[in-house]
Simulated assay, not measured.
Amino acid sequence: MAAESGAGTQAVERAMSLLACFTDEQSELRITELCARTGLGQSTVSRMISSLDRLGYVVQDARTGLYSLGPSAVTLGSVALNNSPLFCAARPIAQSLAHATGLGVNLAEFRDDRLFYLCNFEGARSPKSFTMSGRTAPLHATGMGKAILAAQDGEYVQNYFAKGFGHAYTPHTITEPAAMKAVLAEVRNRGYATEVEELAFGRACVAAPIHARGGQVVAALSLSGPLSELDLAGRQQELSLMVVEAADELSVALGFTVTFTPRSSLPLSSQEPPHGA
């Protein structure tokens, strides 16, 4: 029985390793490429891919012979998302915010020292031809990541960089713990974070933290888009108020008691130059 259990576990792990080979960068693969990526023999890969194909987790292009993820994989992802209280609460709020601003609205959880995107909606002025759901992003180079980092203690921030996570994506990326701690102090003071070309050139965002019932920051919400559309120099206060209110609404949906701050008492952040500009 133990031997059968071990063999079954190994088969599952091998099948999952094959599915994990498919990425945004390499969404279509040949059997030989799957062998190279997993280290499995061609007969093993062929047998397992055939089973995954039969079950709908992969599909083969009849013309090219290339495999890609199939409809069963999409179904599982949808089930996982629809089982998330955060996703279900955020979907109408994010969609409404994207429509009102014409900008992109993103929702991401704090998971394993990274952002894990649950959903995104694109406004008319910030279109994308792909979804962010299921993707990950670094904490230090994103507005949502900084909104989450601001809720962590100094030791966590120090260890984050000590682990080698603080890569530079552009010349504007903050890569030093001391500089990041100063930025995070500002984020805590004003209640939201900004990011200007720290992850990608020509892009910016404004983000606010989302609190769980116990008060811990578990996720963040952001408004993002091209620099020209966000216009942080002129619209930072307006956009920050909108994203903070939406994030607070999500926190309430998760059971957190929010003390709402009157608009007139919030910092006049639009008078401050955005970080990284």
Rank of each mutant, 00 (worst) to 15 (best):
P171L: 02
G134K: 01
S222H: 03
R190W: 07
V157H: 06
L199Y: 15
A162W: 11
D231C: 00
T194I: 10
L199H: 13
G191F: 04
R203G: 06
L221F: 10
A162R: 12
H140F: 08
A219G: 04
G234A: 13
R188A: 09
A151M: 09
S240A: 11
A212P: 07
T175K: 03
A151F: 12
H167E: 11
A207T: 06
N159E: 15
A141T: 08
S228F: 12
V157R: 05
G215P: 00
A178S: 14
R188E: 02
V218Q: 03
H167L: 14
A233F: 15
T175F: 07
G154E: 13
H211E: 01
E197R: 13
Y192G: 12
A200C: 14
L149R: 05
I148A: 09
A207Q: 06
N189Y: 15
G143E: 00
R203I: 14
A141Y: 07
P226M: 09
R190V: 10
S240N: 07
C205F: 08
C205N: 05
L221G: 05
H167G: 11
V217L: 09
C205W: 07
A208W: 08
K146F: 06
S228P: 04
Q158C: 14
A204I: 00
E229W: 01
H172A: 15
I210F: 11
L230D: 00
N159Y: 14
V218M: 07
K146L: 05
D153P: 03
V187P: 02
Y156E: 08
A204R: 01
R190Y: 08
G164N: 04
R213I: 08
G143N: 02
A168D: 07
R135E: 13
T170D: 02
A168C: 10
Y192L: 14
L230N: 01
E229T: 04
E229K: 07
M144A: 10
I148G: 06
G154F: 12
A185S: 12
F201H: 14
R235V: 05
S222L: 04
A178D: 15
M180L: 08
S222A: 07
K163Y: 11
Y192K: 10
L184T: 01
S240D: 00
A193Y: 13
A179K: 14
A233L: 15
A162Y: 10
L221H: 07
V157D: 03
G154Q: 14
A182K: 12
L239C: 02
A179P: 10
N189I: 12
Y160C: 12
V157Q: 06
I148T: 04
Q236S: 13
I174S: 05
A151N: 10
G202M: 05
T170P: 05
F161S: 05
G215S: 04
A220G: 02
Y192R: 10
H172V: 14
T170S: 09
V218G: 06
Q216R: 12
